[in-house]
């Protein structure tokens, strides 16, 4: 078999698939952040905790109710989204008139609460979640694990469906209009507060969905959200939150870059996204897809 820059192609392609599936989570999470930020002007710091909740709810459904992964894939986003709805109605909606920073601080507090409760209940060692699609597809140049392939494809479909809804449908037009001029849209008889609640719930549901998808790949632990969300913040800074398609592309692209770094220079794989963020800040401070203000 041929070698590429001294790396066996099997290892290279395997890491590319790992990178792409990580990128799928980056894309789902940064998309949720971008949707929430676009409508509510709130950076949802609890996004990582809600992702972790998604994985835990899937684990609970399997362990306590015997419901398989495929059922969890439908139930979990609804449960986690409903939790988000509650947070928006009870807490976040009181802060819209204030500086954006208070939304960040509030959701940071929520993240600490959620993480603390789960840590108390389940400890910090991971809980295993059985792979619903074991085995792999032998492609000759590499073996494609079924589940990773499914996770990448599924999140790509969800991302594109979200993009289509926001950019091409009537509902999306209302949403974009309410982002620009909530007062005018309200005057046209559209219930803007309800749209805000549902948007937050939808963004949180995306995080929950990412959590379910992640459960069979990573072990389910209360810490899985906080370490990931910081990388996702860097992804958001790199992409800029102005464009939906941009955050999807940036998410997948950075996952890929991270996977390649693991092949060619492993010690930097933890920090490569941050290094790219630094370079982007130097060359194009508004982000790859952002517009200068």
């Amino acid at each position: 078999m041929f070698e590429l820059l001294g790396v066996a192609p099997q290892a290279l392609f395997a890491q590319l698939i790992v990178g792409l599936s990580n990128g799928a989570f980056y894309a789902l999470l940064s998309l949720g952040l971008a949707v929430i930020f676009g409508m509510l002007n709130v950076i949802n710091f609890a996004h990582g905790a809600q992702y972790m909740m998604g994985a835990f709810v899937a684990w609970m459904l399997l362990t306590y109710a015997g419901l398989p992964f495929w059922a969890a894939l439908v139930i979990v986003p609804i449960v986690v989204g409903a939790f988000g709805l509650l947070i928006e109605k009870l807490l976040l909606s009181r802060l819209y008139q204030l500086d954006h920073l208070y939304g960040l601080l509030l959701t940071f507090g929520l993240a600490l609460i959620i993480e603390g409760v789960f840590r108390h209940q389940y400890g910090v060692s991971g809980l295993p979640y059985a792979n619903p699609l074991p085995g792999y597809l032998p492609l000759g140049f590499m073996n494609l694990p079924y589940y990773r392939g499914f996770a990448i494809l599924f999140s790509l479909i969800v991302c594109l469906a979200t993009w289509y809804t926001i950019e091409k449908t009537k509902l999306g037009a209302y949403l974009r209009a309410a982002t620009e001029r909530p007062d005018l849209v309200q005057a046209m008889g559209i219930n803007v507060p309800r749209m805000l609640s549902l948007t937050y719930a939808f963004g949180v549901a995306l995080a929950g969905l990412a959590g379910v998808l992640a459960a069979p790949i990573y072990s389910v632990t209360p810490l899985m959200g906080s370490s990931l969300i910081i990388v996702v913040f860097a992804v958001v800074v790199i992409g800029g939150m102005g464009s939906i398609l941009g955050s999807i592309l940036t998410g997948f692209g950075l996952g890929l870059v991270e996977g390649l770094t693991k092949v060619f220079y492993p010690p930097a794989s933890n920090t490569v996204v941050f290094v790219i963020m630094v370079i982007v800040l130097l060359l194009r401070p508004q982000g790859l897809f952002g517009t200068p203000k």
């Binding site: 807490l91 009181r94 802060l95 204030l98 208070y102 601080l105 509030l106 940071f108 507090g109 929520l110 993240a111 600490l112 609460i113 959620i114 993480e115 603390g116 409760v117 840590r119 108390h120």
Partner: peptide, 21 residues
């Protein structure tokens, strides 16, 4: 109290933001 410290800090955060900014 272990992990409850984290929860308490989170609660203080939320209460401060909501009640006495």
């Amino acid at each position: 109290l272990g992990d409850w410290v984290l929860v308490t800090q989170g609660v203080v955060f939320v209460l401060t933001v909501l009640l006495f900014r």
